[in-house]
């Protein structure tokens, strides 16, 4: 019913955004200085070779024509050949994107599972120990970006204490199970390879934690602020006046209204995770899309840049549609289409 209409409307809107992003990044990649053919062939290449390559890449055609050809290919799942690793961009994305998605999902789960309970406890026992710890973490989270945390966590837990592996996705001795979902941890569960699952989990802990720290702090603060506000509302006073239990107020009657703004913030957090994942992956030598993306930018690999940006934009849009659906699920006023006066 109305949820499906809502979903359809959001998906159509997302397609328009994606089309806009594709025009923008396609033009931007070509406007920034530096000749991709010259960079790819090196300073010693002959002029004729460079010209031939420019022709081969359609760089000597008008921008509009190049774009139309690109869209034609993209619709068939062909994003062109990368100038950096000379393989189809789509293939590289298919290989590296799941790794990054898995890292971001892990960070998002950590953010939700640590941030929300922290906020609830901080609001319930205002100015208590947990409240002060959340304050400290949010200060630290705001003071240092995630790649700094990545380095600090790596130094502390991987280098000094040696509790976690330093880098990479899996240990040398481990072999990934056949890809079903592309998400290593899920594939391990499907294949029943528990040793590999354990190794994968150990490898993902530090990067996911580094990535999620600032989000945890923000979600905790937001949840706390909303919970405090809801605790002061008339309907919680009514709940008290009718002897509702403290637990049911904290986990149900106050939490649900308080979660609505938190969920919206969560959508924005996912955008931040996508950006920060590049840096965290670089620190931990994580085989995600970051390595390819960074090289594509440095090498002015046009197809690589456009492909990476489009995939990230699509992931961001999908995450936001998911968050909107979650908000609609939690808030009946949105789900049932209330006209608010």
């Amino acid at each position: 019913m109305s949820v499906w209409r809502f979903l359809a409307r959001r998906l159509v809107a997302s397609l328009f955004v994606l089309a806009g992003v594709s025009v923008l990044i396609f033009c931007l990649a070509r406007v920034i200085p530096g000749d991709p053919a010259r960079i790819a062939l090196g300073p010693n290449a002959e002029r004729e070779q460079v010209e031939a390559m420019r022709h081969e890449l359609w760089l000597d055609r008008p921008l509009a024509e190049q774009y139309v050809r690109f869209v034609g290919g993209a619709l068939r799942g062909d994003l062109g050949i990368s100038l950096y690793n000379h393989r189809p961009v789509m293939e590289t994305i298919r290989r590296t994107l799941p790794v990054t998605v898995e890292l971001i999902l892990a960070a998002a789960v950590l953010t939700a599972l640590i941030g929300v309970p922290m906020g609830i406890v901080a609001a319930r026992w205002r100015d208590g120990a947990i409240d002060n710890i959340t304050r400290l973490i949010s200060l630290l989270g705001a003071a240092a970006p995630s790649f700094v945390w990545a380095i600090l966590l790596m130094l502390g837990f991987a280098y000094t204490l040696q509790i976690f592996p330093i880098a990479g996705r899996l240990s040398e001795a481990m072999h990934a199970p056949p890809s079903v979902t592309g998400l290593l941890l899920v594939d391990c569960v499907i294949a029943g390879q528990w040793a590999v699952l354990g190794d994968g989990l150990r490898h993902i802990c530090l990067p996911a934690l580094a990535l999620s720290l600032s989000g945890i702090a923000q979600i905790a603060r937001m949840t706390r602020a909303n919970m405090v506000e809801v605790y002061d509302s008339a309907h919680i006073e009514l709940a008290r006046a009718f002897a509702f239990s403290e637990a049911s107020m904290a986990l149900k009657y106050a939490l649900r209204p308080a979660l609505i703004p938190t969920l919206t913030l969560f959508g924005l957090q996912i955008a931040a995770l996508l950006g920060n994942a590049f840096l965290v992956e670089a620190v931990f030598g994580y085989p995600g899309i970051a390595q390819f993306g960074v090289q594509a930018i440095l090498q002015k690999d046009l197809n690589g840049i456009v492909g990476c940006v489009l995939v990230i934009a699509a992931a961001f849009l999908a995450a936001n549609v998911a968050v909107d659906l979650a908000v609609a699920f939690v808030d009946p006023r949105i789900r049932l289409g209330a006209r608010r006066g």
Binding site: A234, F242, R256
Partner: peptide, 18 residues
């Protein structure tokens, strides 16, 4: 709520919206 109960003033805020 059992021996002393209260009727609240404003129905638009006293009921939990969700």
């Amino acid at each position: 709520g059992r021996r002393i109960a209260m009727i609240f003033q404003d129905p638009s805020t006293a009921l939990n919206p969700v």
